[in-house]
Design a protein around this nucleic acid. Structure first.
Length: 506
DNA sequence: AAAAAAC
């Protein structure tokens, strides 16, 4: 246990920390803060929920305490992948830099340029931004990055997922090479490693990541339902919610449209729920999140915008309305609960159509979740759809007709009636005792199925390897002839071979 | 398959 007072922070900052109610530092804070205070680069391998935001804001505040920034020339820069995350970083500065002269500005999309420009003109010490809006300001000539002394990249691997790496490279190149860089990523895929090698200067590597597996304090439940039908899934979700003692919970869906439908449906059934996803207005996103944080909203229905990074203190339940497309996302989603050693319950609704993604999830977590059985009358769900079974039961109507057709019936009809008497609706939940959760026979059976996927994973590298790493002469030729006009300054990302396209054509 | 992010 390391106290903040041991880390070399100033009395003023320590007071701000104490005012926030903290005394002991998290492992990443204990390791990163002293290093960052010396001005060295930091490569932090840490997931969210490890306290990494404070791990870089605190030393930044200290190092920026002396000196002032000029107009349009921020002295430091924090890049985050999502607006909410950037907002959280801003909140951290607001909290810990209070009483100092440090000024900061939040540059994110979805809000007007005016206020952001005003702040830039006045001069800010800390710029917190998402890549798109930052570059937008830069291109409008509102911003110079040549005065940046400290640059932070938060959740780099997520930026990679979101296609931001070229932007990040560009931003790196707009800042002076002689600066301090604090670089955080939960994982280190090759692309990220390459980036750190190119732009970090002899960084101190600090690891505070939990393994990719899931915490012991999170009880994972699997809810198999017999039909891959959204209505049936909503029935199941309601039954789960009604059958659990929820303080607050997040319901994750794969699609934004589904988020809207599920949120509406829950509200129509008397639940305290609201939606959050990337198509909603920024002000609404923030308001909803704020209400959820304050405990004024019980159920947050979310796309994966909320899966990672968001600072939502303690959630008692996570519901996976859909099996996520990527197993990683599952880990992040359920990681919204069971934080700081508390216990959490998670439920995932699984339909016969989800077996593939489910396999991937189970393989990654290495766990066999408890199966929760819902004793519901599924015909209620199937009934409404039966007459249009021609649609392969998926209920994905063509554009145009979808809205008017789906909306009302979904909310108003048999479903609503089905919910009427609560006692009847409550799930007859048959929960296996923990020890019995993973019957030993189950494991080998699952293992035996593996050859199929193993065969796939074996031949995949074989197919990709020759593309990803062409023979030397070819590479040199490409380097000489493929990209022109940059001289020695060719951006590295232009030199990356594009295996997928080649493979697809071949 | 989907989501995220700039106007």
């Amino acid at each position: 246990m390391t106290e903040f007072s041991e880390l070399g922070l100033s009395p003023h900052t320590l007071q701000a920390i104490a005012d926030s109610g903290y005394t002991t530092a998290t492992p990443i804070q204990a390791e990163a803060i002293p290093v960052a205070l010396t001005g060295q680069d930091v490569l932090g391998i840490a997931q969210t929920g490890t306290g990494k935001t404070a791990a870089f804001t605190l030393p930044m505040i200290e190092r920026l305490a002396s000196g002032r920034s000029k107009a349009r020339m921020p002295r430091s820069l924090v890049i985050a992948p999502t607006r909410e995350l950037a907002d959280q970083v801003a909140a951290s500065f607001e909290r810990y830099a209070k009483g100092t002269k440090l000024s900061w500005a939040l540059l994110i999309g979805g809000v007007s340029f005016g206020d952001q420009e005003k702040k830039l003109d006045r001069g800010v010490d800390v710029l917190i931004a998402t890549p798109g809006r930052l570059l937008d300001h830069f291109e409008r000539g509102k911003l110079l990055l040549t005065g940046v002394q400290i640059m932070v990249v938060d959740e780099a691997d997520r930026m990679l997922d979101m296609g931001f790496i070229p932007d990040i490279e560009r931003i790196f190149k707009l800042t002076p090479p002689k600066k301090q860089t604090l670089f955080f990523s939960a994982t280190m895929p090759p692309e990220i490693t390459r980036l750190t090698k190119q732009f970090l200067n002899d960084p101190v590597r600090i690891e505070a990541s939990r393994p990719a597996t899931t915490g012991e304090n999170i009880a994972q439940h699997l809810v198999r339902i017999p039909l891959a039908d959204p209505k049936a899934k909503r029935m199941a979700l309601r039954a789960l919610i009604d059958g659990a003692e929820i303080k607050n919970g997040i319901v994750f869906c794969n699609r934004k449209s589904e988020v809207d439908v599920v949120a509406k449906s829950l509200k129509a059934h008397g639940h305290d729920a609201a939606a959050i996803h990337g198509d909603l207005e920024q002000s609404v996103r923030m308001k909803t999140l704020e209400a959820f944080r304050k405990g004024e909203l019980k159920l947050l229905v979310a796309s994966d915008v909320a899966a990672r990074g968001l600072d939502i203190p303690d959630v008692s339940h996570v519901f996976n309305f859909d099996v996520p497309h990527h197993a990683d996302d599952y880990v992040h989603r359920i990681g919204r609960t069971g934080r700081a050693g508390r216990s959490g319950d998670t439920f995932m609704i699984v339909t016969p159509a989800d077996s593939r993604n489910l396999d991937k999830v189970l393989k990654l977590t290495g766990k066999t979740p408890a199966e929760t059985v819902l004793d519901l009358d599924w015909s209620q769900a199937a009934g409404g759809d039966r007459q249009r079974e021609g649609r392969s039961g998926r209920e994905r109507p063509a554009r145009g007709e979808s809205r008017s057709r789906n909306r009302r019936p979904v909310e108003a009809q048999p479903e609503a009636e089905a919910a009427a008497p609560r006692e009847e609706q409550a799930p007859r939940e048959v929960r296996a005792p923990r020890e019995e959760r993973a019957p030993l026979e189950d494991r080998p059976a699952r293992e035996e199925r593996a050859p199929r996927s193993r065969a796939r994973s074996e031949d995949r590298p074989a197919r990709r390897a020759p593309e990803a790493r062409p023979p030397r002469e070819e590479r040199e030729e490409r380097e000489q002839t493929g990209v022109r006009g940059f001289g020695d300054d060719t951006p590295a990302f232009l030199m990356i071979p594009i295996p997928k396209m080649a493979a697809a054509k071949g």
